[in-house]
């Protein structure tokens, strides 16, 4: 009996849930608690976006990305961003090497950006010059150095971490850079019950080992599965209204947005809502994106795309407050 399109879709969705579950359980062997953070990070990975993890030191941000890299068996590269880092340090540069005949020649030595999964640790410590070297890599998945253009292999994912507290000696990410991240995940403190397990796992002799439960090819396939999920008009219109509502002076903007927001989300915000919503729908066992999926990912996808103005900063308004009011204000289209 020949499988219909619906059967194939069901099988793909089942595979997606299975791989997602395997990777998540492997990561959870290493990371205690933080389920929402793990879910959001994996959502970004499967949706084909880049993730910005923000949290105070010691919450396991770096460990999370490293464990995901090990679980999906991707070419992993860690870059510790420092203020004296230059674009050539991460992109690669021509170095003078000695040839066999005793001569010298320039040879291109690629930087750590050429990998599958990049951990850009403390990305805001690098200067904007170096930060902007990531722009091309993140958007076009390629690096241009001199007259050489290196196409980065898929799956390509940048997971950056930053510390929101220590702002001295750091360079806030420019808007263009922030917009390229699909999600900004805020890592909070673990639950009270998780502390015991954290202590047991990290201070004993036994170190948990992460198995390779997926591969790059599988991730690429699952990304195609995600992109295949259809979006009904209701969810699409709702996502569009949400994004427009974050723009001050727009038709759907609530008063809070007009008062406290300097810059709203761009069309990339809608793209992000759709992609992340598709992952949510698949994980929920559905074959189409619902309004609830858009709502569920709205904070993570839009939080870094809303720029608070001086009035808002003075009043202590955060991007999450703005998004709360937007979600409350925007009606679901029928």
């Amino acid at each position: 009996m020949e499988a219909t399109g619906a059967d194939v879709a069901r099988k793909d969705a089942e595979l997606f849930r299975s791989v997602h579950g395997r990777v998540k359980s492997e990561v959870q062997r290493f990371i205690v608690g933080q389920e929402s953070v793990i879910d959001a990070t994996l959502t970004g990975l499967f949706a084909g976006g880049h993730i910005l993890l923000e949290g105070v030191p010691g919450l396991g941000k770096t460990m999370l990305v490293r464990s995901i890299g090990e679980a999906v068996h991707l070419d992993f590269s860690r870059i510790q961003f420092t203020p004296d880092m230059m674009p050539a340090d991460i992109q690669g540069t021509n170095v003078l090497v000695e040839t066999e005949g005793g001569g010298h020649e320039l040879q291109f030595q690629q930087g750590p950006l050429v990998a599958h999964l990049i951990l850009a640790d403390e990305i805001n410590r690098a200067t904007p010059r170096t930060q902007s070297a990531l722009l091309e890599a993140m958007q076009e998945h390629q690096i241009s150095v001199g007259n050489r253009t290196i196409t980065l292999e898929e799956p390509y994912c940048v997971m950056a971490t930053q510390n929101p507290v220590e702002q001295e000696g750091t360079y806030p990410l420019p808007e263009a850079q922030l917009d390229r991240f699909l999600m900004k995940v805020v890592v909070g403190y673990p639950e009270l019950g998780d502390y015991g397990a954290i202590v047991d796992r990290t201070t004993g002799n036994e170190e948990p080992e992460i198995r390779r439960v997926s591969s790059g090819e599988e991730i690429i396939k699952l990304r195609q599965v995600v992109r295949g999920v259809p979006v009904p008009d209701r969810a699409k219109n709702y996502a569009i209204h949400l994004v427009v509502a974050t723009q001050p002076g727009s038709e759907f903007a609530p008063k809070t947005v007009n008062d406290h927001v300097a810059l709203g989300a761009s069309p990339r915000g809608v793209q992000g809502l759709m992609l992340a919503g598709k992952v949510k729908a698949l994980l929920a066992g559905r074959f189409a994106v619902a309004v609830d999926d858009v709502k569920a990912v709205a904070h993570d996808v839009l939080r870094h795309r809303v720029l608070i103005n001086f009035h808002g900063q003075a009043d202590g308004v955060t991007a999450d407050d703005i998004l709360d009011s937007v979600l409350q204000h925007v009606a679901i289209p029928s």
């Binding site: 059967d7 259809p230 074959f287 189409a288």
Partner: peptide, 16 residues
């Protein structure tokens, strides 16, 4: 909505 479309993908059929 998917029932009203002339071309339906596997996911749409699955959703229906």
């Amino acid at each position: 909505e998917f029932l009203g479309r002339s071309r339906r993908t596997g996911y749409m059929e699955a959703a229906i």
